[in-house]
Design a protein around this nucleic acid. Structure first.
Lengths: 195, 195, 195, 195
DNA sequence: CATGAATGAGATTTCATTCAT
DNA sequence: TATGAATGAAATCTCATTCAT
């Protein structure tokens, strides 16, 4: 219970500011305990990071399955993921925060971690791979059922979609509005649509 | 002269490891002076960061102009930028390093800065905006000249391209190979091509 | 029962690493309980130390009596104590360890305690005094019976022997071999021998 | 200058209380600077310890040479070293303290270090070896010149003397008085004297 | 009896910053 | 200009101790 509190508090702060900008005092305060208490559950700050990211990825990966193996059409799913930023919404819900309160930065944390904590790289890569796989499977289905055009490479398409999702995080607020996301999605659909 | 040395040394290290993972001792060492000396040219570490980023963006923005206002066709330009990662290559050249030596992480630095240094956000947004503008102008031209289809919104397209570029940075090595980048580019062209 | 377990576990670790290098978690682990449990039997870590040392000294002092009041000649007893390091052997047996497993450092623990825990100094001094007394009594007997020369001061001799025993502990392995100990003993006998 | 100040301050405190009982704040205070300043000269607390011990041993070893290669007779030298505790007196002088101010515990520090800092063990062993060598050489000379009896093993004798010196440190004040030390020395001379 | 959660004081270490020279 | 000494705040981490259960 307390361990999960700490994990979630840490995750919230790491996503908000980045690993190096969050101190154990911050985490302890957010989790409602004291600094030393964290060491009852974790051996080091880095272990908190690992646990937090594994926690997040476990849930993300279940969420990917749920999203892409449902019976909805590809268009609806992509709308949910790209235009409505479902993963971001889900993260807020997971961490128990309302969207207006904080501005999370998932991509930033991942990039910080990738550069400086080699031992978590494997998990990040696996997460990316699972996400691609989920999209790709759905795309293949859709191609077989004539829902989208079938002369494109489904693997490359899946990566393109992942790339777009990651790229959205780097944009400032002016370039990341609901309207613009919807237009990007429309463009993507122009590409996929079977005419 | 010394100031530019420091700026470039700092930029190299910031891109390599992220702002918080680089100390002034590191920068001084890389620039061939001592820690105290940095304070002759800069008032604080944050000022070094600002200067370095402005330095980089100044050159980036000139580079955008050069890339997108040349007489080449859109396809060739996008190939250069997306598949061949021209901006990355250019950064290496600017900092006097060979590509094999280091692995830069532009997106990571930007996201770190966006989260924690509000005063540089403006410049980042401007940089994004200028990049979009350059693409957009080129796209409009191409539409007028019948080089690409003209029924798409050029602004949204430009943002889509920027998003893809940013997103590439977040991918691990397995998902960011020359071949995959080429396939992504092919997919993009399927969308743009006037059939 | 449990209390003696803890006492012995603590003694083992203190002798092995020194008081400050042993944590209550270590002791609890060695004793097969948890940290909190120690506080049922002891009021503080320092109390564990005191108890452990008193435990050791109680047995040491009984051992001195046994060694020096037996009917063996002085030479044999000194051989046992100096050349064969009987007290060390006895300590291993007391703590239930085989000699190869660990390398105890009795002198180190005593010196650490002497410097930093004044309240146990009395017991250490008493232990030294009892040891001296036991030797001295035996020496006097041997002088009366013409076993050793009788023109030396028995008190000073006893202290000299104690000093040698203490000093052996400080030596590295190269200067503390069975052969060298035997030679030291021979030299000592040259001094004592009635010619 | 400052570095030597820190080294000496640290040495003083380490000898007084033991490594683990001395904090960097203590050392900094004793040296007249602040905690952080120590890291200008030393990479870690352990490095301070190493430097301090090497500093001490360098001077000790020079002192051994001086003591044992002078033209005085063996008896006088041993009196100086054993009965008058010359090395202790010299240590006080080296660290700039008067004997009454502190009670140094050289043997305790050495034993703590031997157990817990393997990388300095070599130096300690070398120090012991050099000390033995110096005594042994002097003893051999004295045997040749008929100053002491020549039928004893000079190496074993040297170790016996070293052992006595080390052992003295472990004794409480009641067993380590000038008078008792003098008597121990007399006993030793009974052994060495050519009759 | 015993556990495990939690605290809080203190330890080592890092590092941006200042300043005399 | 530039250096190197020094500071001080803050970060990570350790651990004896307390206490509810």
């Amino acid at each position: 219970m307390t361990k999960e509190n700490i994990t979630i508090a840490a995750l919230r702060l790491f996503l908000l500011r980045g690993y190096k900008y969050v101190s154990l005092v911050d985490i302890a305060g957010e989790a409602g305990i004291t600094k030393g208490g964290i060491y009852h559950y974790f051996g080091s700050k880095e272990e908190v990071l690992c646990t937090a990211l594994h926690y997040l990825f476990d849930r993300f990966e279940a969420k990917y399955q749920e999203l892409f193996s449902c019976s909805q059409g590809v268009r609806e799913i992509l709308d949910t993921v790209i235009a409505e930023r479902e993963m971001e919404r889900y993260t807020y819900q997971l961490l128990g925060i309302r969207k207006g309160d904080y501005r999370l930065n998932f991509a930033g944390l991942i990039l910080e971690v990738i550069q400086n904590f080699p031992e978590i790289q494997g998990r990040i890569d696996r997460n990316h791979a699972l996400f691609c796989q989920a999209i790709e499977t759905k795309l293949k289905q859709a191609m077989e059922q004539g829902e989208i055009r079938s002369d494109l490479d489904s693997h490359a398409l899946a990566i393109l979609i992942l790339t777009m999702l990651n790229g959205q995080n780097s944009l400032g607020e002016q370039l990341n509005t609901p309207l613009l996301r919807k237009q990007m999605m429309d463009n993507l659909w122009q590409l996929l649509d079977r005419k």
